[in-house]
Design a protein around this nucleic acid. Structure first.
Lengths: 216, 216
DNA sequence: CCGACCATCCCGCAAATGGGGGATGAACCG
DNA sequence: CGGTTCATCCCCCATTTGCGGGATGGTCGG
């Protein structure tokens, strides 16, 4: 990927101006590297991008917000089929899609409203093989690593949190009971409180809540 | 933190040369910002750092590898008591400590062997309030987000994945049944297959698996 | 001391679940 | 064509769960 004089680059974005911005920035980076810009391909929709996937690209910049599909599905396809560096590009930092995008294997995550020279810098870094994340995204990632004890305080007592954790791992009442050295009745009582306080009514929901609280 | 003409900066590292390197880089950044460098404090050990904690700093650069303690404990203390930007500094990128450090609330993670101008850049970014991560660390973080992409493909059929998704959201058999317009018997049959294939035996575990597969 | 939480234990019961079985049609593949 | 997998339906039955009670002792703040 690094040797070629004319790297093949895929740019996917439904909005023409955004594509221009990206392509220009990429061209600038390539020029700086003394490389040819003839290998740049553009796609303006999900389907358009999908038909290009069999072509082998060295780099790809994929907008997440396409009218006819999800950007991260493109990213997943790209990353799973051959060796390529992919950056997600988007305007908004909806934390929902960040997860999905990073899970799809993106090597970078750029926010379009950055100043041009920062965009240039990030593209440069990405093409140098380094992960390239916009500050907002990096912040979001960092937050994921912190013990998710966010959210004011939850109304749960320590014991309930303990039970929540174990049940959230998939244990059943009896197992939790012997783990905590208490009666299974008690476990179920705590569970009742948890159900009431968190407004849920099944083990599955409890597992979800446990995840949400990072009580793995 | 941003307004002061003489930001208070804490530098913790047991090795003198490393401290020099950091302090010099910090001074350079401060000079560039037209700020005074008189607020820089140095500590050469864990204990030395701990006694300085009550002083209020704006920024801190903490080496993780101290002879008498763990850098991330310092970071945790700093972050938990007041508003401050903290970067971890280290030579090696032992993935063990990365977890702990990020969990402690570090805003940046610098690797010392970077070229001076990159170090300068990273410090600058951090002081501007942006998270600042060395590429190796960013890579490591990105890897954490990828679905522990083990396993070939999962053995589930489309229908089973559909059921998995709904059950993973906390629905019960009957609800899934009407959602999919099939009999609740069938739902439970699919569930049986899922249990067998994923080697689980409860709703809670199914919910966990669903999460793991991004079938939110 | 009293009320409030909390953790602990228990009972009972209807409903849901988990695990075993069997059966049918449709689709697909060699 | 015969075999396999899939999706669909069904039955049975022991166990678990969800939900309604009631009860005791401990701790802590007012």
């Amino acid at each position: 990927m690094s040797g070629g004089l004319s790297p093949r680059v895929l740019v996917v974005d439904d909005l023409e101006p955004a594509r221009r911005l990206l392509v220009d920035a990429i061209k600038a980076v390539l020029a700086k590297r003394g490389q040819d810009a003839s290998g740049i391909e553009e796609a303006s929709s999900f389907t358009e991008a999908m038909v290009l996937l069999d072509r082998k690209f060295d780099f790809a910049f994929v907008d997440l917000h396409l009218p006819d599909g999800r950007g991260w599905d493109i990213i997943r396809s790209l990353k799973s089929s051959y060796d390529i560096l992919v950056a997600a590009v988007t305007v908004m930092d909806d934390s929902q899609s960040v997860e999905a995008t990073l899970a799809a294997g993106a090597d970078g995550y750029l926010i379009k409203d950055a100043e041009p020279e920062l965009l240039h810098f990030r593209i440069e870094r990405l093409m140098a093989g380094e992960p390239s994340l916009s500050p907002a995204i990096a912040r979001m990632m960092l937050a994921r690593f912190r013990p998710h004890q966010n959210e004011e305080e939850d109304p749960l007592t320590d014991r309930e949190r303990e039970v929540l954790s174990l049940v959230g791992r998939g244990l059943r009442a009896k197992e939790v009971a012997e783990q905590l050295q208490i009666s299974s009745h008690t476990v179920r009582d705590h569970l009742k409180s948890i159900y009431r306080k968190l407004d849920v009514s099944s083990r599955a929901e409890v597992a979800i809540e446990a995840q949400k609280r990072n009580l793995t």
